[in-house]
């Protein structure tokens, strides 16, 4: 014998009945009928406002990169940030060579994102508005939005790894600066010999 319903055909009782819940929670049961919900049935035709069988094609201002799983460039597409530089070359190669089913496709795109960030940061140094890691990371919010009080004594699971974030942002720059210092010192030493 057991008093645990789970090991019998019975289901454990809920703390409150439907009537109690209906009285306590506004709207309880308003969508009770599973067949009368907006997402049911999953596939369901309705008037969309489209007045075309196939949409008119948006002009392509540059050869638009596309998944090779598509038959053609879709009739409408975004035009933000055309591919450029080394990151653009990696992206175009990834789209041209690998389908979405291949890990290489996505890993190349992630690699291109890192290259893009480096290219863009370097490019910004020859503009009137170079990247500013303090303002762009929003670090000032640590002071204006109670950075310490929001974490101290809260037993938050994310505090354990938040220390990695500055490393992700600044680490490559520190490493690059270190490498540059080592290289310059080596050159200076060689010049003195």
């Amino acid at each position: 014998m057991t008093d645990l319903p789970t090991y019998t055909a019975r289901k454990p009782a809920n703390p409150e009945t439907s009537e109690q819940l209906r009285a306590r929670i506004p709207g309880w049961g308003a969508d009770l009928d599973p067949k009368d919900r907006p997402a049911v049935p999953r596939e369901h035709a309705e008037e969309t406002g489209a007045h075309w069988e196939f949409p008119e094609r948006q002009p392509e201002k540059w050869p638009r990169e596309r998944s090779i799983e598509h038959a053609f460039v879709t009739p409408v597409f975004g035009t933000s940030c055309p591919p450029k530089g080394l990151s653009g070359a990696i992206r175009k190669f990834s789209y041209r060579r690998y389908s979405e089913g291949r890990a290489a496709h996505w890993l190349l795109l992630v690699a291109a994102d890192r290259v893009d960030a480096w290219e863009s940061h370097l490019r910004s140094f020859v503009t009137a508005r170079p990247d500013n890691p303090v303002t762009e990371t929003g670090l000032l919010a640590e002071f204006t939005r109670h950075g310490i009080a929001s974490r101290r004594g809260r037993r938050r699971a994310d505090v354990v790894h938040q220390g990695l974030d500055p490393l992700i942002v600044a680490g490559p720059w520190v490493a690059a600066a270190g490498a540059a210092v080592v290289a310059v010192r080596a050159l200076v030493r060689r010049g003195r010999r």
Partner: peptide
């Protein structure tokens, strides 16, 4: 299927 050339997924 008509708005995203970058991915079918």
């Amino acid at each position: 299927h008509n708005v995203n050339p970058n991915a079918t997924a």
